[in-house]
Amino acid sequence: MYVKTLRVVFAKPLYTTLFLVISFFVLSVAIMLPHVGLIRTLWQYESVSVVEILLLTANLYGSLGTNFTILSASYTVVIALLFGIQVTLLAYYLKSIRNKATNLTSVGASGVGGLISGFFGIGCAACGTFLLSSILVLFGAGGLLAWLPFGGEEFGLIGVGLLVYANYLIIKKINAPLVCVS
């Protein structure tokens, strides 16, 4: 049922494009998070051309291989793909039900929870620079990371799990027509 549903949705070019755009956006945010300061700095130097900034930005995508562990790079890509799938499935589902209101609480909660959890674990895994450590340090709890077996990367894995669950729920919704219940 699930594979068939995915085939139906992704057979349409519009949804495939949406999936690619959303996935690329999420992946780009994850990779570029540590480099926004640099890119912003370059924009402020008037003598730096747009082409130079774009070339540098393109080269910075290579930091997926240098700024991440194999584990964090893997789940960062997976989270981006899963979130792309989720948004695409939601768009398909919402279009199919049109104006009929329905209960999407569990789908929405799982999807957003997955993205949030995933983002805690991603955003450059270089020592101490990923988002979770920034937030923990903000609250004076940076040492907590040393106690986590994977140093905070657990949140990325939890994110993957939640997004898989959210996708499962939305596919179930797509395959369950609206009916009257007593």
Partner: peptide
């Protein structure tokens, strides 16, 4: 120029 992390 800020260089954050292990850039390629």
């Amino acid at each position: 120029y800020p260089v954050n992390g292990a850039q390629p």
